[in-house]
């Protein structure tokens, strides 16, 4: 019996035979996820839309050479993440340099070592923590991450991809993904502490 919902591979086979309906179906399946990934990496609706269009056009152009060594979604994420990284590199820098970033990442370690008492905002009520200003602070903090740390963090902690899939998408080793993710999390934790911790 034919499954009701075709798999990505089945849709790809139909697209290769010229079935435009299958193409629309495949695009509809992933358009929100790709847009969200691009939006979280770029913080701009216009740039995210450009990346979305570029990504699907590249998918259509490359579909004949797609051999299925990785899953379609991993391949699509790779194309979209690379398009977003290219866009970030083209625009004026908003993010920190890597050395500034690493100084900030480890500032908390030094503060703790020097005997400072770190603010604990982990139990702040969710209503206060998720208001519009808090969301703005969180978006600004992501934008400060150097591009590759941002890509790793968005794919892993916002999109929820496993570390191995993030490694495949970004062409990194799994240990490199874990180390970048850890630094990105430390940085963001420090930044949010500056905001939520002050409210204590």
């Amino acid at each position: 019996m034919q499954p009701l919902v075709p798999t990505d591979e089945e849709l790809i086979e139909r697209i290769r035979r010229g079935d435009n309906e299958a193409l629309e179906q495949l695009v509809s399946r992933y358009e929100d996820r790709v847009y969200n990934l691009a939006y979280r990496m770029l913080s701009s609706r216009q740039d995210a839309e450009d990346v979305l269009q570029d990504a699907f056009l590249n998918v259509i152009r490359g579909l004949d050479s797609f051999r299925g060594q990785s899953s379609f979604s991993t391949w699509l994420y790779r194309i979209a993440a690379n398009a977003a990284l290219t866009k970030i590199r083209k625009r004026s820098r908003r993010e920190k340099s890597e050395s500034e970033f690493l100084d900030d990442v480890y500032a908390v370690k030094e503060a703790a070592h020097a005997g400072a008492v770190l603010p604990d905002w982990s139990s702040n009520p969710a209503t206060r923590i998720l208001d519009e200003e808090a969301r703005r602070q969180m978006a600004t903090a992501i934008n400060e991450l150097p591009e590759i740390y941002r890509a790793v963090f968005v794919l892993r902690d916002v999109e929820g991809l496993p570390a191995a899939a993030v490694a495949e998408v970004l062409d990194l080793s799994v240990p490199a993904v874990k180390s970048r993710l850890h630094r990105a999390r430390l940085y963001l934790r420090n930044r949010l502490s500056g905001y939520f911790g002050e409210e204590e």
Partner: peptide
């Protein structure tokens, strides 16, 4: 105390980012 604070607030940081609603096209 400090390691406990860092671990709890890092966990909260990750949960907060994970809870951001998907930006719909």
């Amino acid at each position: 105390h400090n390691c406990r604070v860092v671990i709890d607030t890092m966990r909260r940081t990750v949960a907060l980012y994970h809870s951001i609603p998907c930006e719909r096209l």
